[in-house]
Amino acid sequence: MSDKNKIKERLKKPSATQAFFNSYDQDIVNNNETNKDEVEDNNENVNETENIVDVEVNHNNDNNQDDVTYVIDDNVVNVGDDDDYLRSLAVGKKATRKKNKKVFTSFYMEPDLAREVDKIASRGAKGDKSKLINTAIRKLLEEYGVIERNN
């Protein structure tokens, strides 16, 4: 990166004050998502399992991806975990699912990317924007070998 770009990057970096105010904007979005999570968490396990299947099918159909990682609200489940989860349900054991912690973050996007992401997210449900960004970054980092590829 050239010195000029480095300086530009530095200038673009949000200050603590901006991050503080932004966190409240993100909190509002997250609260809506959390409320949705709570409602769904109250559903029966059977319904939850059905939802998981639906999301998996849609995900694979829509994007024609071999990637089997998918996100349902704040639960990140891969097939291995899902298998164990369903197996536990099938044999009548108490089923638990791994929950990944979510973190708030804010960053600047290039305008054309931001427009496309917003366009895609507007066709989906709440939380889909996060799913898209997470999926994209995960795939990139897998490709770079920074994180392990999910099976």
């Binding site: 200050s15 004050t17 901006q18 105010f21």
Partner: peptide, 13 residues
């Protein structure tokens, strides 16, 4: 300047 930035943020929002 940090405090004035907070003032500006509060004013803006």
């Amino acid at each position: 300047p940090k405090f004035l930035e907070i003032v500006a943020g509060a004013r803006e929002r």
